[in-house]
């Protein structure tokens, strides 16, 4: 194959400029601004400010409330990622085998994807509502008093359920197309070697799905960390109370609801660093074990 080359270094830079400008304006500049304001306590209107050094950070490490949110976010992310990937993979493998009416099954399974997170949250609130929720009533018939918004873990369970439900279709679509990309010849060869469907899945299908899985893992972690905001907001009804909160939601609560720009900037810087570490770990250690065809 012939290598294409540019005659002059200026031209590729020119081509990159629009993208770099967008990143600079919408990412680097606000990020730098967040780092700067995390060292201040500032009147939201911009009239007064005090330099407080690392106070906004040390305060976080001393706050049991913040540590609770951090712990909850970790548990939440792990559970949401695990269940939404696991269930989607199971559904995709099963749907892949369906011959009659395959399209209908697939469409039905993808349907939920079209629902916006706040709407998903709202549906969750209706299902789990204290007095009228369907799921609450079902649980009550088993003798369990489910109390959304009062009991910490009940609220957490509702958040996780709704978040998983909302994310399954995305994963399903990717897993299904991943499965369909596995060459028929490979599957047939495996079929001759091994009669057991389960071991064929783990030996052949799963490794060949790994690139898709890795991509989805990153997407799902990002989803759990950030995109569940709308679900959390609707389930807690905008009132943090004694409800479980994710780190992103806390940034919003302190910064936007409370007008504490310094404190919330410090939290978003911490979040930025966490995501950076996570990304490095994922690419350095996990991706090495994955083979792209």
């Amino acid at each position: 194959m012939k290598r294409a080359a540019f005659g002059h270094i200026g031209f590729p830079i020119l081509l990159l400029l629009p993208q770099l400008a967008i990143i600079a304006i919408f990412f680097y500049w606000p990020a730098a601004y967040a780092v700067e304001s995390s060292f201040y306590l500032q009147d939201p209107f911009g009239f007064g400010e005090t330099f407080v050094g690392f106070d906004n950070y040390t305060r976080l490490t001393n706050s049991t409330n913040y540590i609770n949110a951090l712990n909850f976010t970790v548990v939440f992310t792990l559970l949401v990622t695990f269940f939404s990937l696991g269930i989607a993979l199971l559904l995709a493998v099963k749907a892949d085998k369906v011959i009659r009416g395959a399209k209908t099954y697939r469409t039905l399974l993808m349907w939920v994807y079209a629902i916006a997170p706040p709407v998903a949250g709202l549906i969750g609130v209706m299902l789990f509502d204290q007095s009228r929720g369907t799921i609450t009533q079902v649980l009550a018939s088993f003798g369990y008093d489910f109390r959304l918004g009062v009991n910490y873990w009940d609220t957490a369970a509702a958040m996780i359920t709704v978040s998983v439900w909302k994310q399954i279709p995305v994963n399903f679509i990717f897993f299904l197309s991943g499965l369909q990309a596995i060459p028929r010849s490979v599957r047939e060869a495996a079929m001759i070697d091994n009669r057991s469907g389960t071991s064929r899945f783990w030996d052949i299908t799963f490794p060949l799905l790994a690139p898709t899985g890795f991509f989805l893992l990153i997407i799902n972690i990002t989803y759990s960390l950030f995109d569940t905001f709308g679900i959390v907001d609707t389930i807690v009804k905008g009132e943090p109370g004694n409800n479980p909160l994710t780190l992103v939601y806390r940034v919003y609560v302190d910064g936007f609801r409370g007008g504490d720009l310094g404190g919330s900037s410090a939290q978003s810087v911490v979040l930025m660093i966490l995501v950076l570490i996570l990304t490095i770990v994922q690419f350095r250690f996990l991706e090495r074990r994955i083979h792209y065809t």
Partner: peptide
């Protein structure tokens, strides 16, 4: 000042009282 957050703290702790935490 920061009374929105102060109310949030109250709501959290009052809930903890009423749930026995």
């Amino acid at each position: 000042g920061f009374y929105v957050q102060i109310r949030d703290v109250m709501n959290r702790e009052y809930t903890r009282i009423l749930t026995g935490e």
